[in-house]
Design a protein around this nucleic acid. Structure first.
Lengths: 195, 195
DNA sequence: GTCTATAGTCGGATAGAC
DNA sequence: GTCTATCCGACTATAGAC
C-alpha cells in the first residue's frame, strides 16, 4: 500500500513545476491559486513552500527554465558559414522548438508582467539574446549580399513574430504536418528577406 | 464648488471603461480588483455595478467594442480592384490602427481566456471575420497572378502575426516614424507573397 | 516532507441610506 | 447615482504536529 505521507522531494519538485505550468498556461498566473496547484500535485498548499519561497518565484523558475532551454537548444544546432542556410536553420528550429514547448512559450509571453522588475529584466535579457542570434544571421547575410532587407532590426522582429504566431493556430493532427509548415514558412521568410 | 456625490452617468460609464482598459492592460484582468477600478475612476466599488452586471461583462464590453471598431474602420477604407493595392492598404491599415489602439489590441489578445465560452465565441467570430478580409485579398491576388504564396491560409496568419508584432516593440519617439515602419513592413510583406 | 489549522488580508457582489 | 457597510468566500503564507 502506498503511504499517504512521507518523503517525495525528488518527484514533487518537478511535478509542482509541471502542474503550475499547465494551470498558469490555461487560466493565467493571477487566476490560479496555490491551493489549485497543490491539489493538482496531490499535496497540501503548505507543502509547496518547501519548494518555492513564493508564488512569483515559481513563475520565474518556469520562465527562466524555458529561456535557458531555448538558448541551449539553439546553441546545439549545427553551425555553418552560409548565411542563408543559417537562416533556414533558425526558421525551422524556432517553429519546431516552439511547437514542442507550446505551453512554456505561451507562458513566457503572457505572464511576463507578473514578474517583479528584477526578474522581468532577467527574462527580457535572455529574450534579447535570442533575438540577437537572428539579427546576426541577417546582418551576415546582408553583408554577404545573400539577403536584402530594409532594416535588419525590423526584419528580426517581423520574422520572430511571424514564426511564433504558428503557435496560435497550429493544431496537432490538422491539415498540415509540422514539417510542411516549416517549409511553407521558410519559403515566405526567404522571399521576405529578398533571398 | 463641485459636489462630492450626485448624478454623472454620462461621464462615469466611459471613464469606467477607460480605467478598466488601462488597468487590465497593465496588470491583467485577474490581477485587477473592482475596488482598484473604482478608485481610479473616483467612485466606490458598489457604484460600478450600476454600469456592468459583473467584472467579466466589463471585459467583454471592452473586447467587443474594440473588435467592432476594428471591423468598422477597415470597412471604411477605400476599396479598389487591384489586389496588390488592396494588400498594401491592409498592411498599412493594420499597423496604423493597432498602434493607435495599442492598449485595446493588447487586451483583446491577452485576456480572451477570461471570457466565458459564449462571449469567447463572439470575439473569436469577429477576429475570424477580420482574418478572412485579408485572406480574400490574397486569394484574389493569387487568382490574378499578382501574388504567389504556397498557402493563402498560412500566409494570412503569418502576415497578421508579423504586423501585430509591431505593437510589441514600437515606441513613440523612437528611431522610426510610424509611416516608415509601415513602408518597411509593406516591403517585406510584398516580397513574402512573391509580388 | 507533508499534514492540519489558522492568521490576516482581500476579493466580488449586494442592501439600503441619502 | 453614489455612498457606506457588510456578507461570505478565497487568497498567500506561516506555525507546529507527526
Amino acid at each position: 500500500m502506498a503511504r499517504k505521507t512521507g518523503s517525495h522531494a525528488e518527484i514533487t519538485g518537478p511535478r509542482i513545476r509541471a502542474e503550475a505550468s499547465r494551470l498558469f498556461a490555461r487560466h493565467g498566473f493571477a487566476a490560479v491559486s496555490m491551493r489549485q496547484i497543490a491539489a493538482a500535485v496531490g499535496v497540501q498548499a503548505g507543502a509547496l513552500y518547501l519548494y518555492t519561497p513564493d508564488k512569483e518565484a515559481l513563475l520565474f523558475d518556469l520562465l527562466k527554465g524555458h529561456m535557458d532551454e531555448l538558448l541551449a537548444a539553439w546553441a546545439q544546432e549545427p553551425r555553418g558559414t552560409d548565411p542563408l542556410a543559417a537562416l533556414e536553420r533558425f526558421v525551422r528550429f524556432h517553429i519546431r522548438f516552439n511547437l514542442e514547448r507550446a505551453e512554456a512559450v505561451f507562458l513566457s509571453y503572457m505572464e511576463l508582467r507578473n514578474l517583479s522588475e528584477p526578474n522581468f529584466a532577467v527574462i527580457e535579457g535572455l529574450r534579447k539574446r535570442y533575438e540577437t542570434e537572428l539579427e546576426e544571421i541577417l546582418k551576415a547575410g546582408q553583408a554577404a549580399g545573400a539577403v536584402s532587407v530594409p532594416d535588419t532590426k525590423l526584419a528580426t522582429m517581423a520574422i520572430i513574430a511571424m514564426l511564433t504566431g504558428v503557435n496560435t493556430w497550429y493544431r496537432e493532427g490538422g491539415r498540415l504536418s509540422r514539417a510542411t509548415v516549416e517549409t511553407i514558412y521558410w519559403d515566405m521568410v526567404r522571399k521576405a528577406v529578398g533571398a
